[in-house]
């Protein structure tokens, strides 16, 4: 450590290179207390452990994709006037949504059982939705009346566009009574 640079930059600004050079021949510096073997091993192993922990965390993070290519949740369900009163399964196959028309307007329900995500079926004669996976039953409002589902079906955002089309957005959901009956989860539409 007490050596001078063998290749000093030719135009280095004035420094004090003389000092270390002068000190060197005087007396070897007292050796700094070396790190003990135990501490050294501790440091080494900790670094290895930290490396493994960081790798594990990075590996876990790697499994979370940043960009996913999934279909848009918003769709145009066509002319509101085209629907009859009651449950329409017109969009079930393509969009997994039931459009329900009541005397005063529309709501749309996401056809995903709140138990474990199967698609229930509408049974008009019994006036209820029934899930084929573990037997949950829901009313027309989406409330659970039998089976293991823990909460009501989700209603989606639904709007009436100026063109008369119903615009459904499955990304905006609500299932609490009191909230789900109002905009944006309900679109007023006076019966003709």
């Amino acid at each position: 450590m007490s050596e001078t640079n063998p290749n000093p930059a030719p135009d280095s600004t004035p420094k004090a290179p003389a000092a270390p050079v002068a000190a060197a021949p005087a007396k070897p510096a007292a050796p700094a207390k070396p790190i003990s073997r135990g501490d050294f091993l501790w440091a080494g192993w900790s670094m290895l452990a930290a490396f493994f922990a960081a790798s594990a965390a990075a590996g876990a993070r790697f499994m979370f994709p940043n960009v996913i290519y999934e279909p848009s949740q918003k769709f145009n369900a066509g002319q509101a006037s085209g629907y009859d009163l009651g449950v329409s399964t017109k969009w079930l196959n393509e969009q997994r949504v039931w459009i329900v028309r009541t005397p005063s307007g529309f709501y749309a329900m996401w056809a995903r059982c709140t138990h474990l995500g199967c698609t229930p079926n509408w049974w008009g004669d019994q006036n209820r939705f029934k899930c084929p996976c573990h037997g949950s039953n829901y009313t027309l409002d989406g409330d659970v009346i039998a089976g293991p589902a823990p909460m009501p079906l989700w209603r989606t955002k639904v709007e009436l566009a100026p063109t008369g089309d119903l615009i459904v957005d499955k990304a905006v959901l609500e299932n609490k009574p009191g909230k789900r009956e109002h905009a944006p989860y309900f679109a007023n539409y006076a019966s003709a």
Binding site: C118, P120, C131, P132, H134
Partner: peptide, 18 residues
């Protein structure tokens, strides 16, 4: 992904869990 067969069952060794 939108319509479930009725009834829908797991492979037999998971039907106990179902």
């Amino acid at each position: 992904p939108n319509v479930t067969t009725n009834p829908s069952k797991a492979p037999w060794y998971f039907v106990g869990l179902q």
